[in-house]
């Protein structure tokens, strides 16, 4: 504890002089970085539009209300598609994430030197890239539609699910696995009896959690042509049909809330 002697009076401080200086320098640097960044944004902003923003917002708001309720009859199919994209996407993602997670976990991988890095690379690269970018890519490869959206959602979810799952595998109680090994069980039997029961709750939690996220993400995939309710949103925006936009946003909001509610219920039932 640094105590300075100032004119014969002992002064207590939390930090000594040097660490105090370093802290100040770091705060200064952070402040400067923030300021420079902000100036960059400011340079590229047409401030005239921003000053005008309240008026524009009020204008859009005025046009958007009341929503065009009759349009809802055309939203049934898109919502159904959105749900399917999210659910099937999660399903197929889990099918691939499980083996990858086992290959990536330190205690179950067959080879730490070769296979584990490959599995980790798959995990990192699939989860670094947003599902909207995957959708963009898949639309340009296999053409627009619900299928591209579903594939995009599942690719994005592989890395996410596999990462959480392999962390769960690495945290299991090795004693239980050892006990099963000691009975003379084969590698696969040990997996089924010793490891799987331990990670099953984590697996279920991850599945539901990701499904909830996927519902949100699949609502916007249509913006790049990958199916679902986003398609309607895109075309309504293009034609500046604000009453339809507000209705679509309301529907999306309801879908998201229901999705969150369902996933919370299921998680509660499992754990």
């Amino acid at each position: 504890m640094p105590i300075n002697d100032k004119n014969g009076v002992k002064v207590w401080q939390v930090r000594d002089r040097n660490s105090q200086l370093i802290r100040w320098a770091m705060w200064m640097a952070a402040g400067i970085i923030f300021y420079v960044s902000w100036m960059k944004i400011s340079d590229q902003t047409t401030w005239f539009f921003v000053y005008d923003a309240p008026r524009i917002a009020a204008d859009i708001g005025g046009r958007a209300f009341p929503p065009r309720w009759s349009y809802i009859s055309q939203l049934g199919k898109p919502i159904w598609d959105t749900l399917n994209i999210a659910t099937l996407g999660t399903f197929f993602a889990l099918c691939m994430a499980v083996p990858i997670a086992f290959l990536a976990a330190r205690n179950t991988t067959p080879s730490k030197l070769f296979i584990r890095p490959i599995a980790l690379l798959i995990i990192v690269s699939t989860r670094s890239i947003n599902s909207l970018i995957w959708a963009l890519l898949l639309v340009s490869i296999i053409g627009p539609g619900v299928f591209a959206g579903m594939v995009a959602i599942s690719i994005r979810s592989i890395g996410f699910c596999a990462k959480l799952l392999y962390e769960a595998i690495e945290e299991i109680d090795e004693n239980q696995v050892e006990a099963i090994t000691a009975t003379g069980a084969t590698r696969w039997q040990t997996m089924v009896f010793g490891i799987v029961p331990q990670i099953l709750p984590a697996f279920a939690g991850i599945a539901v959690f990701r499904w909830d996220i996927n519902i949100r993400e699949s609502t916007v995939l249509g913006l790049v042509g990958a199916g679902g309710i986003g398609l309607q949103l895109q075309s309504s925006l293009n034609t500046l049909a604000w009453p339809q936009v507000s209705l679509i946003l309301a529907v999306i909001l309801v879908a998201v809330v229901i999705g969150e509610w369902v996933s919370a219920k299921v998680r509660g039932a499992i754990i």
């Binding site: 960059k40 944004i41 400011s42 590229q44 902003t45 047409t46 539009f49 921003v50 923003a53 524009i56 917002a57 859009i60 909207l132 949100r216 993400e217 609502t219 916007v220 913006l223 949103l233 925006l237 946003l249 999306i252 909001l253 998201v256 809330v257």
Partner: peptide, 20 residues
């Protein structure tokens, strides 16, 4: 509840294109 992309669309409509 609001997806980032949707929020971004609204903000672009209100504040104009660009990083703001």
């Amino acid at each position: 509840a609001l997806n980032e992309i949707i929020v971004a669309i609204l903000f672009v409509a209100i504040f104009g294109f660009g990083p703001l």
